[in-house]
Design a protein around this nucleic acid. Structure first.
Lengths: 98, 98
DNA sequence: ATAACATATGAACGGATATACATATGTTCA
DNA sequence: TGAACATATGTATATCCGTTCATATGTTAT
């Protein structure tokens, strides 16, 4: 942490970011697509959840720029946006597993 | 991320951990005590919030082992538990500020 | 064009939770 | 011991949010 205290507004943004990570479905989705991109149906089947549920959560992930999308015909392929995402998850893991 | 997919239960735990970071009040508390320990009253005044609100949130932070407590007379002095906490916050900051 | 499939979206319901108020517990000092 | 202060806790409320169901939008192939 730096010496200077982060602005309140930034802390609100930060809280919003962590909120996205604070749901097990979204985490599972992120983990599911962490190695290679997956279509919505693939993710839903993999997690054994409703397609609409996954779609709703993917929107949240999209809005927070945590995932990328690519269309290929009828399917939309999702993948993690950048390495920050993986690192944030790993960091959390470290805390839990210590 | 490793090749092996994390267990579902661990992802639930992980979500719970991130949930704690997903509240601006708790984040502000953490930032407030990141440099040096502070009493409950000090934190509450610093954030201009009710003492009970802060106390409730400190309990959440305690239960998740994110803060340490030390009693000194009437006051309880809170500080961050370990460097993971700071690093998780920094990592989130990086994501936002990029 | 229409059928079949994939995904997104809207609305509603239920459960979780942050805050405030009141009060209890704990500590110090006179 | 009792007053004053610091912190914790119980309860209630209001808001937020994840999921489901229903349906719309978009794409492909016949």
């Amino acid at each position: 942490m730096d010496n200077n205290i982060p602005d309140i507004e930034i802390l609100f943004e930060l809280a919003d970011l962590f909120k996205v990570f604070g749901d097990s479905t979204r985490l599972r989705v992120m983990v599911t697509i962490s190695d290679s991109e997956r279509s919505v149906t693939e993710i839903a089947e993999s997690l054994n959840m409703e397609q609409s549920t996954i779609s709703h959560q993917l929107r949240v992930l999209r809005q927070n720029k945590l995932v990328r999308v690519r269309r290929d015909g009828k399917q939309m392929y999702y993948s993690l946006d950048d390495d920050h995402v993986k690192k944030i998850i790993e960091m959390g893991m470290d805390h839990i597993l210590e």
